[in-house]
Structures are given as structure tokens and as C-alpha cells.
Design a protein around this nucleic acid. Structure first.
Lengths: 119, 119
DNA sequence: CGGTATCCTTTCGGATACTG
DNA sequence: CAGTATCCGAAAGGATACCG
């Protein structure tokens, strides 16, 4: 295994706390663009600082994009996945399946039509 | 999203540095049981402390099992994946595919018949 | 060989207050 | 609303030495 092993590289970027949860929130439902506060209130325990950091990292890595409407107050800032970000869905999906299959940490979210996840 | 969301729970366990790389080493090749030193020398930068910690965590989580032959010196300690651990392959596989597709961190390991990965 | 023990540095991340 | 700034404690991780 070398330093440029994809597993090594991906995990260094995506393995930090909240990262994958933020992405998961952006996959949900049919709504493409989501606001900062929408994301924040959906993830229990997530502080504003952490959300800001993760959003910046993900934008830098090219997994999401941000658009800001500053024409009037309050400012409207929205986030959406890029193609690269959408593609990561497969990893999250397998993660979810595995977690459910093995009841990791008593995972009990139903896989289909989950009201909480909308996944 | 609740605390028992599978994605949340899985990432808290598997998102730490080296964890997934250790698992990846155990998937490789046809050899079922692998020794501590075998794993260690394959992962660049991994220290003995970190390997010990991760192996213990993974055993506790039921992803791998350990067998020790202390009948003679030096002691022989070997590790192998459980069914649960093997199952996690799907997540790692998707991670690898994604990393390669998007050249994350200049990932350049060929997907099939990779000499380094044996994956 | 297969780990521990120790020490030390870095990073993470929670809380809270504040601002355009 | 959408963030920053600051502070601080906790946790993670690296280096290295040592041991049965």
C-alpha cells in the first residue's frame, strides 16, 4: 500500500467528524439547494463552527458548491452537491446498508421511506 | 437525522485514522490469517501503538478475530476478518472506486490486478 | 515477535459571544 | 441569517524505548 492508495487518500479527507453527515443531508429529498440553517438543524450536536469548517473543506475538495444571494437582508446562502459529491452517494449508501445489516450502534433507521432520513 | 442513524454510527467507529486501511490489508489476497508484523509493514507510517489500538477496536466491534499461538517463542499472533468484517468490503470497494474515478489526492492505483493492493 | 509504556504535540471540537 | 472569533479542554496521534 502506497501513499496514493485511493482508500488512504479518501479516508484522510472524508473520515473527519460530521463530514459524511453533512453530505448525507445534502442527498436527502428532492430539494437541490439547501441553506446553512437547514443543514444545521438537521444534524444533532453540530455547532456552527464545525458546519462552517466542513462546508469549506467539502467545497475545496469539489464535492459541493455554494451560491449566495446578498441582494437583501438577511443574506441567503445555499449549498448543493457537485457531480463529484453526488457520486459519493454510493459509498454512503453501502455504509448505511452495512450499518443496518449489522445493527451498528443499534442503528434502526429503516432503509426505505425513512421519515427522518428521507433517504 | 437521529443519533441512531446508521451513517452516524458507522462513521464514529470506522472514521478514525488507519482503521479502514487495516481492514483493507486484511482483505488482500487469498491468505486468511495475517500476522501483526505483516500488516504493520504494509501500511506506511503506521506505528505499533496505532496498530494495536485499531486491532483491539476492530475486534471489539466484531470485525475481526485474533488467534495466538504461545506454545513457543516467538509468539505467533494472527488476525482474520469475521463475516461482519468481510461484509464491510462493499464500503471499501465503493470508496476505492470513487477515489480512483475522481483522482482524489492523485490516487493512481489501478483497480484490477494491482500489485501493491492485491485487491 | 508482538506488543506496552511513556511522553509529548497536534488537532479536534464544544461553548459562547459577536457581527454585517 | 450566516457565519467569525476566541477560548479552552479533551482526545487523538506520533516517536521512541522497552519488555516477556
Amino acid at each position: 500500500m502506497k501513499k496514493n492508495c485511493p482508500i488512504y487518500q479518501v479516508m484522510r479527507r472524508m473520515g473527519r467528524r460530521w463530514t459524511i453527515l453533512v453530505l448525507a443531508e445534502l442527498y436527502k429529498g428532492r430539494k437541490k439547494w439547501k441553506r446553512y440553517s437547514e443543514i444545521k438543524k438537521k444534524i444533532p450536536g453540530l455547532t456552527p463552527k464545525m458546519l462552517s469548517m466542513r462546508l469549506k473543506e467539502l467545497e475545496k475538495e469539489g464535492l459541493l458548491k455554494n451560491r449566495v444571494d446578498a441582494k437583501k437582508f438577511p443574506v441567503k446562502s445555499e449549498y448543493s452537491l457537485t457531480k463529484k459529491g453526488e457520486d459519493f452517494f454510493r459509498v454512503i449508501d453501502e455504509t448505511k446498508k452495512w450499518g443496518l445489516k449489522w445493527k451498528v450502534g443499534n442503528s434502526d433507521c429503516p432503509y426505505v421511506d425513512c421519515k427522518e432520513c428521507e433517504f
